[in-house]
Amino acid sequence: MRILVVEDSNRLRESIVLALRRSGYAIDATGDGREGLEMAEDHPYDAAILDIMLPSLDGVTILKTLRAAGNRTPVMFLTAKDAVSDRVAGLRSGADDYLVKPFALEELLARVEALCRRGYQKAASDTTLADLTLDSTAKTATRAGVALDLTAREFALLEYLMLRAGQIVTRTQIEEHIYDDLVSPMSNVVDSAVYALRKKIAVSEDSLPLIHTRRGQGYVMEARPA
């Protein structure tokens, strides 16, 4: 899951980015409104966190511009403005969520998670495919009752593939959603990550292969014999 964070307080932005990265999200962050808008227009983010009062361009304007251009990225406002009128105005301008500073880290993470789910029309935090179950909240995955030992990025990759189960996912899409600008992935990074993930989810000899390669297109995750 790749998330855009636009927040002008440096310390707060860095903390949020740190917390989200450690939770397995790929993060792009900026403290400038105009730059934030450009980033949101350039990349298909799974969710965006916007401050309202920003230098050069305020959060509400960014959101309105995005929505006017048909961008449906789930957006959450993160702001110190807590008046009911502010919340209403924020939500009416097209935001999916509104969080007032100061906030609890767990609440921020839960809300970001819910925002990401919304992008994939998912109602609960559990995702299941055959005997593989994934809990987005606890960040755990189990296969046939066996807990999988995954890194944050492997989990994010598995989550992304499972959320788009049955659909072909290209390498570019994986790059865009799992890796942020800081990583600058080479094309074989995705392949090796998928290879490592395949090995980890094959918990036993008779485990059904779930991640399939579509030559020249990408990967598709589904429960069918190879």
Binding site: L12, R22, K101, P102
Partner: peptide, 19 residues
């Protein structure tokens, strides 16, 4: 509003360090 941002910063720093 003026006090919320620094408090949010403090809170985040603390929570991230604890987590």
């Amino acid at each position: 509003h003026e006090m919320r941002t620094p408090v949010a910063e403090l809170k985040m720093l603390g929570e991230v360090a604890l987590k």
